[in-house]
Design a protein around this nucleic acid. Structure first.
Lengths: 150, 150
DNA sequence: GTATATTAAGACAAAATAGTCTTATATATT
DNA sequence: AATATATAAGACTATTTTGTCTTAATATAC
C-alpha cells in the first residue's frame, strides 16, 4: 500500500470537509459518522493535520475542525507529508538506503521516473479537486464503505 | 511503501541469483550473507518463491536455490505477485472498497492511470534487466546496505 | 548407516501500525 | 458558577508485519 491507513483517513476527512465548503466548524463526530471511521482514531489523525496548520480546530459548543485555507490551496501532497512524512519521495524501490544518482540500484532509473509522476500528481491535486469529483459522483463516501462494488 | 519489506527481500535475492547466472544451486546462506538479510527470514521468503515455482530448491550438500526459468523469463511482477499478491493492482488510493469504474472515488481516474504505469513497469522489467543493471553499476548489493549515500 | 549439509516448517518474540478508552482542557450557554 | 459540548493528550490494547529460533525432513559423502 502506497499510503498508510492513517494517511488515507486524513485524506478522506479532508476531502469531505472540502466538499462541505462550510465557513463554520464541523465536528469530528460528524465526519467520523459519515466516513465510518472510529471517532477517537480520526481525532488523533486530524490532530496531526491541525498541528501542520492544514486544519483549524476549535473546542467547545459549535466547535470542530475546518480547513485552514481554501480547498484549492491545500494539496493532496500537503496531507500526505503531514501524516506519512516524506519517505515516499526518497524511498528506493528495493529499499536500499544508499540508492541515488551516484550509486543507483538496478531499479533506480525506472522507479524514480514513476515516483516523480506520483509526486507530481499529489502536488497537482487539491482538496477542491477531490471535493469536485466527490460531488460529481453523487455518491456519499459512506456508500464506498459498504464495499458494494468489485 | 509500495512493496512490503518481505517482497523487497525477495526481489533483491532474485536479482542477485540472476546476476550470478549459475546453473547449479546457490545456498540461501550465501545470499543472506551478501544481502545482509537474516538467513532464517530470507529462507521463509524464498520458500514462497519456490512454491510459486519461480525458484527451484534442493536440499542437502550442494543444494540451495536457483531460478526455475531463465532470468529474462521471470518478471519483476512475478515476484511481487508471489509475495505481496495482487492487492496493488486493485487498491483504491483512498482505500475505498467499492471504488471502480461504476462508482469511482474522487481519486480514481488519476490513480488508476499511475497504477497502470507502475504495473506496466513491473511487467516489463525482468530479473535479467535487474541483473544487468546490477552488474553495470559495479557495486555489490552489500555496499547499499551500509547506507553510504544520501 | 552415520555424520554432515541443506531447505521446510512452525513456534515464538519484537516492532510497527492501527484502534480503543479515559482523562484533561477549552469554550459556550444558562 | 455550573453544566454541556467539543478537541487534546496520553495510556492502553489489538493486529499485522518483521524477525528469531528450534526441530523436521531430505540429500550427499564417507
Amino acid at each position: 500500500m502506497l499510503l498508510s491507513q492513517t494517511c488515507i483517513y486524513g485524506l478522506r476527512a479532508s476531502a469531505l470537509l472540502a466538499s462541505k465548503s462550510r465557513a463554520d466548524y464541523t465536528t469530528i463526530r460528524e465526519l467520523s459518522d459519515e466516513l465510518d471511521i472510529s471517532f477517537h482514531f480520526l481525532t488523533k489523525v486530524l490532530q496531526k493535520l491541525t498541528k501542520s496548520e492544514l486544519l483549524e480546530s476549535y473546542k467547545g459548543p459549535n466547535g470542530g475542525v475546518k480547513l485552514a485555507r481554501t480547498a484549492s490551496d491545500i494539496k493532496f501532497m500537503d496531507v500526505v507529508l503531514s501524516i506519512d512524512g516524506d519517505s515516499l519521495l526518497h524511498e528506493c524501490a528495493l529499499g536500499l538506503p544508499g540508492c541515488g544518482i551516484l550509486e543507483p540500484c538496478p531499479m533506480h532509473d525506472q522507479w524514480s521516473g514513476l515516483k516523480q509522476n506520483i509526486v507530481t500528481m499529489m502536488k497537482d491535486i487539491t482538496l477542491k479537486d477531490l471535493a469536485n469529483n466527490y460531488n460529481s459522483t453523487h455518491l456519499t463516501f459512506d456508500s464506498f464503505n459498504k464495499g458494494n462494488q468489485v
